[in-house]
């Protein structure tokens, strides 16, 4: 089990620690369902009516409002592996009485929600928000973050519920007002399509507002992410600067195997580096007066997110390098084979 060492919370980036709860960012811009895709299963599978969506939203809100301030006040002193278990126990303590009460009433929502109502006790949104935000902030900030996330979650769940009930059953809150019966919308695939369409719509709206300068929320989110990346870059650079450069070993004269031509100026084999799709961050030491790490401008940062650019600048050179290294490795294998065969010949009587 993953046991975090003491003082693990200090290791989190200061961008995470300095992040302030924001209604627009948490509820709208970084919507838990449409942007972060957290807590998707109940909405996609069970939010088929307005009533069911309301129950899902309320349970989720109750869990967030209880767990997040508690995590911010007390639970952050516990080790990480224990905290997650505590979130789920708290979730169960909040959800099971509601389930019992609904079953006593013979509520139709129990049938509609089915298995997903007890499963809501293990809501991933609660665990994620507590671990990402609550353990690094004060209880008051946690409460605000919980309310903002619950609002964002509820907004999407209710919209999905209303659309699925209206088009899927021709009713609202159980009251039929038109003869409409699109069965596909009751099914999870209908939920996925609807959530996907809403996510696309949110992206279009944000882009539209951002282009016209009406709303700068997208830029704010970008700035936050930029801060985070900038900080990671600085940390990496500090690590690189503190590391003592090892003396390069004398290169041994390489004997070329037969049939394989390797130019003498071939670079030494480096250990293969894992491929990373992270956007290339220009090194600060390229700057002539690089006393401080260079602050990446927003436009450059946005350009860095272009996948083709990332591929051309970051991934393709790595692939080429790996292919080259494999050729050299093949030559080395041949060399070893040759020496083994020679030894074998020597051993022969």
């Amino acid at each position: 089990m993953n046991q975090e060492p003491a003082g693990h919370l200090e290791q989190r980036s200061s961008a995470e620690k300095n992040k302030k709860p924001s209604w627009t960012s948490d509820a709208f811009l970084q919507n838990p369902i449409l942007v972060q895709a957290i807590g998707l299963a109940p909405v996609v599978a069970a939010a088929t009516t307005l009533r069911a969506s309301l129950i899902i939203s309320l349970v989720c809100a109750a869990q967030l409002v209880v767990c997040e301030p508690l995590a911010g006040a007390v639970l952050k002193k516990l080790p990480g592996w224990l905290r997650v278990a505590v979130y789920y126990v708290l979730g169960l303590a909040l959800t099971l009485p509601l389930l019992y009460w609904l079953e006593l009433r013979g509520d139709v929502a129990v049938t509609t929600l089915g298995l997903y109502l007890p499963l809501l006790a293990l809501n991933s949104l609660t665990a994620v928000r507590c671990e990402r935000f609550a353990v690094l902030h004060t209880p008051a900030e946690c409460l605000r973050d919980a309310l903002a996330n619950a609002l964002g979650y509820a907004a999407v769940a209710l919209v999905v519920g209303v659309i699925r009930e209206t088009l899927g059953r021709g009713s609202i809150w159980g009251r039929e007002f038109m003869s409409m019966n699109i069965r596909g919308l009751w099914m999870p695939f209908g939920g996925f399509l609807l959530v996907g369409a809403l996510a696309a719509l949110l992206k279009v709206i944000l882009r539209f507002l951002s282009e016209r300068g009406i709303y700068s929320g997208a830029d704010e989110a970008m700035e936050l992410e930029l801060d985070d990346r900038q900080e990671r870059l600085e940390k990496t650079q500090r690590l690189l600067e503190n590391k003592e450069p090892e003396p390069a070993p004398e290169p041994e004269p390489r004997r070329e195997p037969a049939g394989e031509s390797i130019p003498p100026s071939e670079p030494e084999i480096e250990p293969p580096q894992p491929l990373s799709l992270a956007p290339p961050v220009p090194a600060a030491r390229e700057e002539p007066d690089a006393g401080q790490p260079r602050r990446i401008p927003l436009e450059e940062f946005q350009e860095m997110d272009d996948p083709m650019r990332i591929f051309e600048s970051k991934v393709r050179p790595r692939i080429d390098k790996m292919a080259e290294q494999n050729t050299i490795r093949l030559a080395e294998i041949d060399k070893e084979l040759e020496s083994m065969l020679e030894r074998l010949d020597d051993l022969r009587p």
């Binding site: 195997p257 037969a258 049939g259 394989e260 093949l330 294998i333 041949d334 084979l337 040759e338 065969l341």
Partner: peptide, 11 residues
């Protein structure tokens, strides 16, 4: 196949 060719060549 390439490796096998190499082995054959070496042998």
């Amino acid at each position: 196949a390439r490796l096998a060719r190499k082995k054959e060549e070496l042998r």
